[in-house]
Design a protein around this nucleic acid. Structure first.
Length: 109
DNA sequence: TCCGTGACGCGAT
DNA sequence: CATCGCGCCACGG
């Protein structure tokens, strides 16, 4: 299970972020946001700074929070006050099955 | 085995 | 926007 969470985390590209809950869902474990945090805390070699709370809020405390903010800034992530500008940096995991015809499809032009 | 804890999330107040 | 409460889930004591 940790592997599923880890790989989901590893999918988040540089310059983009995702949330604990989104990672959990992408890993097929909806509702396991706390476990995502736990994995992040107990595993090394993961792009941990790219994972923030819902709404782009940094959930770390003290120096760790500063470091995350710094690392993200290094990757070009912008903030809106205390949180990440999700509008611009939230990573969208590819849909498991079909893509969603938003409103107009006609891919076969 | 029960209980408290926590890098969570979300609706209600 | 700040808080609170409750649901969630794996760990450690």
């Amino acid at each position: 299970m940790r592997d599923r969470i880890k790989s989901a985390i590893r999918m988040v590209p540089r310059g983009q972020v995702s949330s604990y809950g989104a990672i959990a869902r992408a890993a097929g474990l909806p509702g396991a946001a706390r476990q995502v945090a736990w994995v992040l805390h107990s595993s090394l070699g993961l792009p941990w700074h790219r994972i923030v709370g819902a709404g782009g809020e940094i959930k770390l405390r003290g120096d760790s929070a500063i470091e995350q903010r710094l690392r993200l800034g290094t990757e070009g992530v912008t903030f809106r006050g205390r949180r990440v500008n999700m509008r611009l940096h939230e990573f969208r995991f590819p849909m498991p099955s079909k893509s969603r015809p938003h409103r107009k499809k006609n891919t076969s032009k």
